[in-house]
Structures are given as structure tokens and as C-alpha cells.
Amino acid sequence: MERVSIEITHGVADVRLNRPGKRNALDPAMFAALVRAGERLKTEPGLRAVVLSGEGPDFCAGLDFAAFQAMRSGDRISADVDLPPTDGPAKATGQRAAYVWTEVPVPVIAAITGHALGGGLQVALGADIRLVTADAKLSVLEIKWGLIPDMTGTQVLPELVGPDVAKELTFTGRVVSGAEAVTLGLATRVSPDPRSEALDMARAIAQRSPDAVRAAKRLLTARVDRATGLAAEQTEITALIGSPNQVEAVTAEFDKRAPRFTDPS
């Protein structure tokens, strides 16, 4: 059975972690499947948005128990995954499984139900937006196993929740509800049906100019100094103004019709 499934409809990719009997836990096959899925979507023609969720009641409960057993003898299961090299900043397999969603050029929306623990939470942090049920359980759980979050979590968490909250969550490993996660900034908003709402959001994004959406993600995701970021804003807006899709957006608005955008090649 495929560890990660992808179904694309009208430019929206429905991506699901597919190991429900194990709460979608991370084993070597799941690490590899997440990276390969993200790499595929980075160059998928006509892609407008991505929804990332888990089959069954849970998003992802973190590392498979076999991984912790292997660690007792100093082994690291993610190190055994055979993947092609990358030019990106994330080099380790676990980092790539989370960071690749940041590299996908269109918005990625994570729909979180049940458990999103440890590495599972870090995968969700790779998304641009996180919708959660109020009773979902999220945790930076690595400290329980004598570890640290090593799948980009130490870099992403402080940006979302602030340094002090990031430290508290990391030092204690406490479990927070979806509702508290929204209050902390760990999630975007509560939804009674995150996957359904995420798909609706993705479809709405898919109706916007793909050039503008991709430019917005580039600018909002980039980690640069202020001067570089402001210069990048001007580069992006200059390229957009008067471009075919921007003209189509204005024309369709005035004509009171649905726009007919052309996807980037």
C-alpha cells in the first residue's frame, strides 16, 4: 500500500498520509513517500493548491515505535532512506519530509485531526496554513524520548509562536489541544471538518491568478533581511503588473465573469 496518496482534481492536490492502522506514523517508507510526493508536486503542471491530511482519525502520531527501539543501539531509521540528493537547505531525510512542503510553489494547507505529535507536527509545520479540530492533540513530543525536534521544528516553531512559547513546548513536550494551538499561533484556525474546509479553501485559491499566488508564497515564505525582502516585493509586483494573468484578473472582474487563467509553464 502506498504510504502517501495523491489525487489531483482541477489543480488541487489531495495528499494523504496513508498508514491509518499505525496512526500514520513515520517509518522509512513514510519518510521516503513524503519527500517524493513533495518533490513531484514541486513541478506538477497546472497545480494551484495542495491539501495535506492523514487517512483515518489521525494526522500523524510521529515516529514509529520501531524507530525508538532502533535508537537504543544508536541507529537512525531515516538515515537509511534512499533518496536522490537535494540542492535545498534541508539535507537530512526527516528535514526534507517537512521542508519539501515549504518548497512546493503553491499554498499547502494541512488538515489536522486526532494526533499530530513530534515529527508529525513538524510535517504539518511545513504547510502554509493549518486547520485543526478543537480536540486535536499536538505536541513537540521529542523531549519525552530524550530528543530534540530535528525536522525543521527548532527553526519554524519560534517564527510561529515566539521564542518563549517555542522553548516551553519543546522543553516540556506537553500536549496542547487544537483550540489552544490556534491561540498559541501553532495552528491557523479551528474547524469541525478540517479536510473538507481545507479542500474548499484550496479550490477558492485555485480560482485566483496562479502567478500572483505563487509570487505571494515566495515573498511570504522567504527568510531574508528586510532590505532584500522589500526589493523582492518590487521585483515581483513589477513582473505581475500588465502580465496576461493580471490583465485577465482585472478584465474578468469588470466583466463580472469567472477568470480564465493560464498556468505557469
Rank of each mutant, 00 (worst) to 15 (best):
L220H: 15
A25Q: 11
G118Q: 01
T235N: 12
D255P: 00
R260K: 15
A33C: 07
R96F: 01
V35G: 02
D263W: 02
W145P: 02
L131T: 05
Q122P: 01
L121E: 10
A37Q: 04
G185K: 05
L117C: 13
Y99C: 10
C60Y: 02
G88Q: 05
P210D: 11
V247D: 13
F171H: 14
R36P: 00
E103Y: 00
A215W: 01
M71R: 15
G74A: 01
L121C: 12
R130P: 04
C60V: 05
I205T: 09
L160W: 11
D75N: 12
I129E: 15
A33M: 05
T188S: 14
R48E: 07
Q69P: 01
A179G: 03
V132W: 00
L230K: 09
R36M: 11
A136H: 02
K144H: 15
N18W: 10
T221P: 06
T170C: 11
R189I: 02
A204W: 14
T9H: 12
L219S: 02
A232F: 01
A33D: 00
L240C: 08
G38L: 02
G119D: 01
G242A: 08
L160T: 05
A179Q: 09
E248T: 01
S209K: 00
G46E: 07
V132H: 02
V51Q: 05
G46D: 08
G54D: 10
A32R: 14
A181H: 00
E103G: 03
E39A: 08
L117M: 15
V213T: 13
V108N: 08
L83R: 03
I109K: 03
V108W: 00
E39V: 04
